[in-house]
């Protein structure tokens, strides 16, 4: 799956995107984010508090308990501030 990061999350991790193999036991967005946060100190710092993050699966905003299913792209970002 492709992971994409935006704004403060992108800056904290130091990457705008990366690839990841989804572990068989990661069923939800929250499961996968917990796994990704173990990748580095920077990932852990950016992703440890899921309540401060928002997620999108294939361009659709979802909650952390959403099932990953066959999604191709997971985006992780802070609450949006447009307009």
């Amino acid at each position: 799956m492709k992971l994409v990061y935006f704004a403060s999350v992108r800056e904290a991790i130091g990457l705008s995107s990366e690839e990841c193999d989804v572990p068989l036991d990661a069923r939800t967005v929250g499961d996968l984010v917990a796994r990704i946060s173990a990748r580095s100190e920077e990932h852990a710092c950016a992703l440890h508090d899921q309540t401060r993050l928002r997620f999108a699966l294939d361009h659709e905003m979802v909650a952390s308990d959403a099932l990953l299913g066959a999604a191709q792209e997971l985006a992780i970002f802070p609450p949006v501030t447009g307009g």
Partner: peptide, 10 residues
């Protein structure tokens, strides 16, 4: 738009 569209301001 303010709460759903993926824009971030700095």
């Amino acid at each position: 738009l303010k709460t759903e569209a993926p824009f971030w301001k700095r």
